[in-house]
Each structure stands twice: as structure tokens, then as C-alpha cells.
């Protein structure tokens, strides 16, 4: 506590504003203004220590080394300006690049979305075609046109004793489920779709 109090006047040249307690044991009961005068007295008395502790806040230097300071400060200014300008440049450039990448992505998304739409349309068209072609009317009509006649006189073979149940009779052409009557279950979607044998 006591050492901190001792150096504080030096680091705060405005003295009294930062002062929170009596300085360095001298006339401890004195007013704030008295402490300030004591503080400046200490600064003058201990220049070496002061420099060590706080090289940037140095009322004594400001007064003494004018030319040297000007030279020393000119170099960082240019450096900082360059850094900031370059930084700005980098920021703007990367923003530009990001913007280009983003809009490029936007076009890619747009293209992919329209691709997706057109593929979905293809799927729909193909699904519809498949559904129509696999409808029972169409399958049965094609099967019969290829000579596959469903026998309305089923006969079973019993596996346990090899017995034939029923009287086997060949299915004559035209006696199938569709037969001579033709397809009686309409399907508008099959309009214009020829039988496999008719192609």
C-alpha cells in the first residue's frame, strides 16, 4: 500500500485528481493541494526511477527532446496507415470475393433447382407411364395377345399322394378372362398404347 501511494503522483502528472491518500508520510494531515506539491517534489527528486517505471508519461522528456521525438513518431504513423489501408484492402477484397462466391453459388443453386424440377417432372412422367403400362387390363390383354390364356377350369395336383383333382382341359384361344369379349374394364390412359404384338 505505501509503495503504490509513493509512485502514483509520478504516473499521474495531474496529481491531486488521482490521489486517494496521503503521500510518502510527509505532513500526513495536510490538504489535497499540499499533497500535490509534495508529489511534484518527489518527481523531480527521483528522475531515474520515474523513467524506469513509466517511460511514456514523462513531463520532463516532453519538454527536453523535441526533434528526436518528431523523427521517432513519423515512422510508426506511416506504418500504421499502411497496415490499416492494407487491412481495408484485404477486407474489401475478401468481401468482393465472398460476394462473387455467393452469387456464383446463387446461380448454381438456381441451376440445380431447375434441374431438380425438371428431373421431378421426368420422374412423374415415367411413373405415370409405368403405372399405366402395369395396369391389370394392359397386362392381361398383352398376355392373351401373346397366347397366354388363363384356364377357367383349374386343376390341382395334391402333393401328398399325387392325386389330380379336376379334369385337365386345354384352354382354347379366346377363352381367357378377356377372351372374345375383349377388355371390359376401360382405362382412358391406355388410349393409343398398342399391344406388344401390335407394334
Amino acid at each position: 500500500m505505501s509503495s503504490s501511494v509513493a509512485y502514483s503522483p509520478v504516473r499521474r502528472p495531474l496529481g491531486a485528481f488521482g490521489q486517494t491518500g496521503p503521500a510518502l508520510g510527509a505532513s500526513a494531515s495536510g490538504p489535497a493541494s499540499a499533497s500535490a506539491s509534495v508529489a511534484s517534489g518527489v518527481a523531480v527528486d527521483l528522475p531515474g526511477l520515474d523513467t524506469l517505471l513509466d517511460p511514456f508519461v514523462q513531463p520532463i522528456r516532453r519538454i527536453s527532446i523535441v526533434a528526436a521525438r518528431a523523427n521517432r513518431r513519423a515512422r510508426p504513423k506511416v506504418f500504421y496507415a499502411a497496415v490499416i489501408v492494407a487491412g481495408l484492402g484485404v477486407v474489401m477484397l475478401s468481401q468482393l470475393m465472398m460476394s462473387i462466391a455467393l452469387s456464383d453459388g446463387a446461380y448454381t443453386i438456381n441451376r440445380l433447382m431447375s434441374d431438380q424440377k425438371s428431373q421431378a417432372r421426368s420422374i412423374q412422367a415415367l411413373t405415370e407411364e409405368l403405372g399405366t403400362l402395369s395396369s391389370p387390363q394392359n397386362l392381361a390383354a398383352n398376355a392373351e395377345s401373346l397366347g397366354m390364356v388363363q384356364n377357367t377350369n383349374p386343376v390341382w395336383l395334391r402333393m401328398s399322394d399325387g392325386a389330380v383333382i379336376g379334369t385337365p382341359t386345354a384352354a382354347a384361344p379366346g377363352t381367357g378372362a378377356i377372351g372374345a369379349a375383349g377388355s371390359q374394364v376401360p382405362n382412358e390412359l391406355l388410349t393409343g398404347i398398342p399391344l406388344v404384338t401390335g407394334q
Binding site: 403405372g131 395396369s135 387390363q137 382405362n187 390412359l189
Partner: peptide
Amino acid sequence: RTYPDGAV
């Protein structure tokens, strides 16, 4: 709406 199997 479409009805793949028609009148089935």
C-alpha cells in the same frame, strides 16, 4: 389426379 388402373 390420375388413376393408373382406370376403371379397376
